[in-house]
Nucleic acid binder design. Structure first.
Lengths: 415, 415
DNA sequence: GCCTTTTGTATTATTTTCTGCCGAATGTGA
DNA sequence: TCACATTCGGCAGAAAATAATACAAAAGGC
């Protein structure tokens, strides 16, 4: 679940040493791309002989493959290029949202190889019926992968709420109306064994993993905050290259930061909460009258946001002002998070990303007025992963297990 | 510097395997106390033979010693108890504050074996003269340890400001009036080589390490925030058992969180900053008239705070109200930090600790009114380490290097 | 005094990486 | 065309660490 390997806490014996070196090669290929054996040996510090030996093991498990001779020129015998093999192993991520469920499958190279989405009215259906549908989506994807002889390394399901990691229980998800649902157990029960392991994670935290792993990690960014603009506001925190979940999984619950003591009361009991200022409802309220069709809950959220964007581009003064004001209030809360954590990058997700081109400038301007020192100048970037970042993060998190211990993948993954 | 070992990123060979297992034994003894070889073997998972072999190496370096037969009873041959040897290796921590400098030395067992403090008027003296005095304090402690045949594993110097870790430079320390001082270099230059390695760290971060390592770590607490009440307000963050420094060392710069939009302007340019509400000056301003001798800057800070405490206990209404109000404002900002990070414990240091018995109850009450769910109920505890927590943390941080790689300690540490 | 139990270490085996070496494949230049 | 230099990948043996086994030593119980 953590993106960087946790420290090896237990004893080290020869087999775990070999495991760690196998993982090192895999991770190196992920970061640096393909290379010949001798180059990889040089770059990892392993001897050529050892590296050759380990590569054989990785090829046996179809985690790595030989691409053919390296036509890079230069004098001497050209080496055979080896690279991550994306054909045999995949991770699966599943997002459960109040309006839809989405499934993504990602291979070792980070390529999305399956993507499904289905509208699900979670609140109306309730947990059991929802999980029936989700299980059907998962089952179809896993079956399709299995038939294509792809080994599923694991499945990570996301929910917009607080999670008990010891039991795989969704403790509280206000937007779904769920409380204390043992999601992992209920989903696992719906499949015949053996079935890939299912894990549960928070949506914003998975999105943070996705952003970190697909891009920023390569840039050397180790401290990142993902801010999701949805009905509520959620944050996912990566510090020291590790996901920060907090003591009881509550980290990043920033929706109820008190930003406006004179503001309107919030359902949580406080007043002037951040998500009351910049949550989805607040944005729509600011942007249009109650009678406006943009408030129609039966329309797809993405369509309504696209329409809002079009209105802004067309010059609708009220919408422009709403977006500007929301962006300013976003920057106010963001400066708090930045003061506490000092991330290198803040990634804007959810509806912030859809309206990104319009919000970015006022957000950066708002941050600039509140900055005390140039050393802490944070980068603010819109998410480039779009709405799939959460399920993508789930798939990546599942694959992390393979990058930590390549021996988890059986030898006969492909016929 | 990190309290838990960073993940081993490089290749693993036999020697690093041995190193890791030596470290494992040391860490186990630190956590679980002494034990016989066979019990340690059982608990660490190492085989008896390997463990015996490794213990010999640790004894050679005087990191571990045989205590004598285990008179624990039971049938069978009694084992020889081995435990951490506190006599041969120590870490040194140095705190530079605006009013004083303090040096602590801690041995492997966590016992404080040297402690010095000297008043230093840093602002008046300026960097060079201050560093002369600090170097003299360090030199005396190191000499004393060397003469006692104690190997100094490292020295960590703290300063109340933002640090550039790549160069060991103090970038900005408002309370010292210093900016861009290459502290590590300037201190190292004052000693003849060879001299133990000097590192630089922020004061609140080191205090957080001290709190974490001496107590909470044993309790299994992996997520902790240290809040220091001084002229400013600083936080030290431990998440996943690791110190969070942020991208550029700015993490925990919470003094200027905007808590009171209608409040008084702050030197930083914002208005209503947290430290304007609960910083030392704010406390004193609330507690007594300007003419009151408690404001006299020539008196030792600790004395003034003790007097304040006595007045409160004696029933001084204004002081009591000031403390109560400060505690309430403390809880307001604390709830923000808690929402973002979800720590298990918040440790109150600096003057918060001195007034702890009076502040704790209103702080907890203030938090309770703002809590949204029982799952995130954070523990608030006063620091039990007192004013030395920072230099203590420095010593512990220096010792961490030994716990990560015991082979750093030379074999002939003791004649 | 003998037996049982447990400890710590010596010995041997196994596993892994490292070093040195060699054949193979390619480019270079006569 | 051919010899030569260069680099690649793999093989054999060395080195080093842990694991398994065996065994002497030190207690307590009968």
């Amino acid at each position: 679940m953590t993106v960087q390997p946790r420290p090896l806490t237990g004893r080290l014996d020869q087999s775990s040493m070999r495991r760690a070196n196998l993982a090192l090669i895999l991770r190196h290929l992920q970061r640096a791309g393909s290379g010949t054996r001798s180059r990889i040996a040089l770059e990892t510090g392993l001897s050529k002989a050892t590296l050759s030996n380990l590569v054989v093991e990785l090829i046996d498990r179809h985690l790595v493959r030989e691409d053919g001779p390296d036509r890079g020129g230069g004098v001497g015998r050209p080496g055979l290029t080896v690279s991550l093999d994306g054909r045999a192993v995949a991770g699966v991520g599943v997002e459960i949202d109040s309006e839809y469920a989405a499934v993504s499958a990602v291979d070792l190279q980070g390529t999305v190889i399956r993507e499904t989405e289905a509208p699900v009215d979670v609140v109306a259906l309730g947990p059991e019926a929802t999980l029936d549908r989700v299980a059907r989506l998962i089952g179809r994807t896993v079956l399709s992968l299995t038939e294509a002889r792809v080994h599923v390394a694991g499945i990570t399901v996301s929910a917009p709420g607080v999670i008990d990691y010891t039991t795989g229980t969704l403790r509280f998800a206000p937007n779904l109306g769920w409380r204390d649902i043992p999601l992992v157990e209920r989903l696992t029960d719906r499949f015949s064994q053996p079935f890939p392991q299912i894990a549960l994670e928070n949506d914003a935290k998975l999105a943070a993993i996705a952003e970190y792993a697909s891009g920023y990690q390569q840039q050397g960014v180790e401290d990142l905050v993902y801010l999701a603009g949805q009905a509520g506001i959620g944050a996912g925190i990566v510090a020291n290259g590790q996901l920060v979940r907090g003591w009881s999984g509550f980290s990043g619950e920033v929706g109820h930061l008190p930003l406006d003591p004179t503001g309107r009361p919030c359902a949580c009991g406080r007043t002037g909460c951040w998500e009351g200022l910049i949550g989805l409802r607040a944005l729509l309220r600011r942007a249009a009258d109650d009678s406006d069709p943009i408030h129609d809950p039966r329309r797809l959220l993405e369509d309504r946001l696209t329409e809002l964007h079009e209105r802004a581009v067309a010059g609708d003064a009220r919408v422009l002002e709403a977006i500007h004001d929301v962006a300013t209030d976003l920057s106010r809360g963001m400066s708090i998070v930045v003061d506490v954590l000092n991330p290198e990058v803040v990634v804007l997700g959810g509806y912030f990303a859809i309206l990104g081109d319009l919000m970015l400038e006022p957000v950066r301007a708002g941050l600039a007025t509140r900055r005390m020192d140039d050393g802490s100048a944070v980068r603010v970037e819109p998410s480039r992963l779009g709405m799939t970042s959460t399920s993508l993060g789930g798939a990546i998190a599942a694959l992390e297990e393979v990058f930590r211990d390549p021996l988890l993948v059986p030898v006969q993954a492909r016929g």
